[in-house]
């Protein structure tokens, strides 16, 4: 009997979080200004999901990890240079827009179609992973819709911990209001897990893993299907940078007592 999990991680590129971003509203709708010039990274939440997937796969023999990404092919290729040394996975690229302005249903459709086309994917062992948030659209919607499209309704969102008991029962901690966790138990896969940060550090770069991954990544990229991902039905009235420039009063060379007094008065005020 086959054992282990089939873990599909959904995630794509986002601008490196340190970059300065500006919208650019053109005839085709909004986009990022100079999008081609911006360096990009794997979405931080999806990256956590990938590390958790790799960790789980290592613990349960027979497991496999796929990373499914919708993004411009060339940018995905570059992204793989920074991701493929982190964890062993099979790459399933879909050549389409990774813009935050795309509708999550359209991205979800592209992802679900790509997942549906993965040969040998055993849905009874499927853990559908991704981030519960993202640094681009940040709607927190895509993963659940992919789950619906694949017929999975056991969904866990903002998960920081997933553990498996001896009888195969899966326990999950989801972040809920007030700094608390919702503790749930799920009998078995398939299930959808939208990861928060988890507890695993970023794995070191492992050149061997990279080389092994890359042998299948490049052929996969060459065969990546092209899809149109947009925001049909959505009309943007405006997209702009927030104009929240404040007049900052800088207090310096003032005794600590005076500063503390001012802060206390402000807190109480």
């Amino acid at each position: 009997m086959e054992s282990g999990y089939h873990i599909v991680v959904c995630g794509s590129l986002v601008p490196d979080p340190l970059q300065t971003l500006e919208p650019d509203v053109g005839p085709k709708g909004p986009a990022l200004k100079n999008e081609m010039v911006l360096p990009s990274v794997l979405d931080p939440w999806a990256a956590h999901a990938l590390y958790e997937a790799a960790h789980l796969a290592k613990e349960y023999a027979g497991s496999k990890v796929w990373l499914v990404s919708v993004g411009p092919k060339q940018r995905l290729q570059q992204l793989m240079m920074t991701v493929a040394q982190k964890a062993p996975f099979s790459f399933v690229p879909v050549d389409g827009s990774a813009s935050g302005f795309c509708d999550p249903f359209e991205t979800a459709t592209a992802l679900a179609n790509a997942i549906g086309a993965i040969p040998d994917l055993d849905r009874s062992r499927l853990l559908l992973f991704g981030g519960y948030a993202s640094a681009s659209r940040d709607a927190g919607v895509t993963l659940q819709v992919v789950g619906e499209m694949l017929g999975i309704t056991e969904v866990f969102l903002a998960v920081d911990s997933l553990s498996v008991s001896e009888n195969g029962e899966i326990s999950l901690l989801e972040r809920v209001e007030g700094g608390n966790y919702l503790f749930s138990e799920c009998d078995c896969p398939p299930l959808v897990v939208g990861w928060a940060t988890g507890h695993l550090p970023e794995p070191p770069n492992n050149p061997q893993i990279g080389m092994a991954n890359m042998r299948s990544i490049m052929p996969a990229l060459q065969k990546a299907p092209q899809v149109q991902v947009g925001a049909e039905g959505v009309s943007f009235a405006k997209v702009e940078l927030p104009q929240q420039q404040r007049t900052t009063r800088i207090v310096k060379d003032v005794p600590v007592e005076q500063i503390a007094g001012e802060i206390v008065a402000w807190i109480r005020g």
Partner: peptide, 22 residues
């Protein structure tokens, strides 16, 4: 332009005093 007030001071000293006052 991100804060309303920026106190240029040692946070250890300031917060110590704030706690004392509170």
């Amino acid at each position: 332009g991100k804060a309303d007030v920026l106190y240029v001071a040692d946070a250890f000293a300031v917060m110590g005093k704030v706690i004392e006052l509170l």
